[in-house]
């Protein structure tokens, strides 16, 4: 005998919310899930009327649900937003090509236009090519650095006012733990911000900041949303895996651990004396960078010169090496926004 829905709507409950432990029926869960995201959006004042917003879409569960919920809420509460899906094609055969198919289906289902940018167009390299050069060990460094910039470039090209990403509460808690383990005080400080954006870059926000990953899966499952779920074929994810396992252990001990860690992250105060890097712009591509030359340009320089390890290591040493070898430019072009072509998927 299934328990009744906690809200007293009279229907049988079909799930127990991981976040609160309440048993809810399908409709009440959908409503609660959406209302909470709406609450986050309004409480944090994420959007302004008339804004053009890009949903970073990978085809995975978080971004699929995000696209769906953004469309729903935009209509229901009349945010007055213009939405667009923005995908990055890293060029990973057997992974991204499949997930992009999902994004294309989402485009048709939700009626939101889609823009796809590829590493190949932006940088002249696909991840498949990069992995051939650098092997499996450090390839995530390339992918992560390139993607961050690629999203910004795509957004700039589209002329959007901001980007929303599908980062959920679990992701953020995990990042807090990772940054403590790495001693990265600057990231620790900003990783819990719901919205990031400094001069010269397009603001990004995380409407799912307080949404549990499990609830996103539940939502997708019961809404029968179409998403792609395969781990990246190049990502062994070793170190992050430890943090993830730790979080799972914590959650088993105390169900609210995820949100407790976010609370901790929100209330941390960084010592004034702790030196934080200042943000400037890259002398080559004008993208924001804390170093004279941004990481993406250094990584690319290494790839183009056939010395893929150039950009790996301590940033001070990397900058030194990059300066020394700057003259010997390789055969492929550097990042140049003029060469970017936007394929309207």
């Amino acid at each position: 005998m299934a328990p009744k829905c906690k809200t007293g709507c009279g229907k049988n409950a079909i799930l127990k919310r991981p976040k609160t432990g309440d048993a809810l029926c399908r409709e009440c869960f959908f409503w609660a899930f959406e209302t909470e995201v709406h609450n986050t959006v309004t409480a944090a004042r994420l959007f302004r009327r008339g804004q053009y917003v890009a949903v970073a879409a990978s085809g995975g569960k978080d971004s699929t649900v995000l696209a769906h919920v953004m469309k729903e809420l935009n209509q229901r509460y009349d945010y007055g937003l213009r939405l667009v899906l923005l995908s990055i094609d890293e060029g990973i055969t057997g992974y991204r090509d499949d997930s992009l198919e999902t994004v294309k289906r989402n485009r048709d289902q939700y009626g939101i236009p889609l823009t796809v940018l590829s590493y190949e167009d932006l940088y002249g390299w696909t991840m498949d090519d990069i992995v051939k050069q650098v092997g499996l060990r450090n390839n995530c460094t390339f992918c992560g650095v390139f993607r961050r910039q690629a999203l910004d470039r795509g957004a700039a090209q589209l002329g959007v006012d901001q980007i929303v990403t599908g980062h959920n509460a679990d992701d953020i808690a995990e990042t807090v733990v990772m940054n403590v383990l790495r001693g990265d005080i600057a990231r620790l400080q900003r990783c819990t911000a719901i919205s990031t954006g400094t001069e010269g870059s397009i603001p990004r926000s995380k409407p799912f900041k307080y949404t549990y990953e499990k609830e996103i899966v539940m939502y997708a499952y019961f809404k029968k949303l179409d998403y792609f779920s395969t781990e990246c074929i190049y990502s062994p994810n070793a170190y992050r895996g430890y943090a993830r396992a730790y979080l799972k252990d914590l959650e088993a001990i105390r169900a609210t651990s995820i949100i407790d860690i976010i609370h901790s992250g929100e209330s941390l105060a960084v010592r004034d004396a702790a030196r934080l890097p200042t943000q400037g712009t890259c002398s080559r591509c004008q993208y924001i960078s804390s170093q004279p030359v941004c990481k993406a340009c250094v990584l690319l320089q290494g790839l183009n010169q056939g010395r893929p390890r150039l950009g790996i290591g301590k940033s001070s040493k990397v900058q030194e090496r990059a300066r020394e070898t700057e003259g010997e430019s390789g055969d492929r072009s550097e990042v140049d926004s003029a060469t970017v072509t936007v394929g309207a998927g």
Binding site: K6, C9, L24, W31, Y210
Partner: peptide, 23 residues
């Protein structure tokens, strides 16, 4: 917009349901 407020809100939403809750 804080974790504390979000938790409280979840609790409220979960127990009131769509009919009794007027956002």
């Amino acid at each position: 917009a804080s974790a504390l407020q979000a938790t409280r809100f979840s609790q409220m939403v979960s127990s009131s349901g769509p009919d009794r809750f007027q956002y």
